[in-house]
Design a protein around this nucleic acid. Structure first.
Lengths: 122, 122
DNA sequence: TATTGACCTAGAGCAGACTCCAACCTTTAA
DNA sequence: TTAAAGGTTGGAGTCTGCTCTAGGTCAATA
């Protein structure tokens, strides 16, 4: 199992060192090992989790919620059904958000057509 | 042309009075008339603009940007091409955001299937 | 040996978008 | 005439999610 340095995680994820440490401080990431000199050592599964967490952030889940989900993961299989609920919930929210965005596109298209018609008449 | 009170605008838009005043203070809404007692009076076109502005907010445009767009509107037809650019730009951003969300859905579905397979084996 | 580079910590600061507060003013209804 | 309803203002406070600063450690290189 490969280990990763801060730099490697930064280039793998696109996060900054500050954000990475912030996420850890907030409990969104946990159980990161250290070298004797105190530097963080990320494992493969840390990276996998991070990527998933980033995906959740991008879909609008709050840091607090992701931390909650992570905590449940750490509690083992008995929390699977709760976690499933959380993800289903998030899935619904994303679908709703997509609808809002599509509605936005429609409105913009309408406006853009209107502008088009004005410009053709100048 | 019908006029609207604060209450009516609140129920038409779903915004709070505070948010409405905040938007005005920030310049996202402008030219709102007043009754002799100082109360705001919103016109039909104020309401129309508000609804459009809210739509822009929902698709992620910042208050600052919407204010900028509004300012251009107030400057008349000569700014139409800039406004068109702004809207096209926003349209692109929304499409990108939709892609991110769809990608998120896919990941969630994958995770959910995994949980499903675990639960079937208990 | 001195400096550079990659980290570390605690804690302060910041931007954005509200949200709340205190004090005040009218108009209407009891 | 007093109270309630429906506003007004300026400014402070809150929450989220970073982002930055200052000062320090350690290992490797010039």
């Amino acid at each position: 199992m490969k280990n990763f340095t801060m730099q490697e995680i930064i280039s793998e994820t696109g996060l900054t060192a500050d954000t990475l440490r912030y996420y850890e401080k907030e409990g969104m990431i946990s159980g990161i090992h250290r070298k004797p000199n105190g530097h963080r050592v990320y494992t493969n599964s840390d990276l996998e989790w991070l990527k998933f967490a980033i995906c959740l952030r991008k879909t609008g889940m709050s840091v607090k919620n992701i931390k909650e989900y992570r905590k449940l993961m750490d509690e083992g299989d008995k929390t699977i059904s709760i976690r499933k609920e959380m993800l289903k919930n998030q899935r619904e929210k994303i679908l709703e958000e997509i609808e809002v965005l599509k509605e936005g596109i429609n409105r913009l298209d309408f406006k853009l057509e209107y502008y088009q018609s004005i410009e053709s008449n100048l």
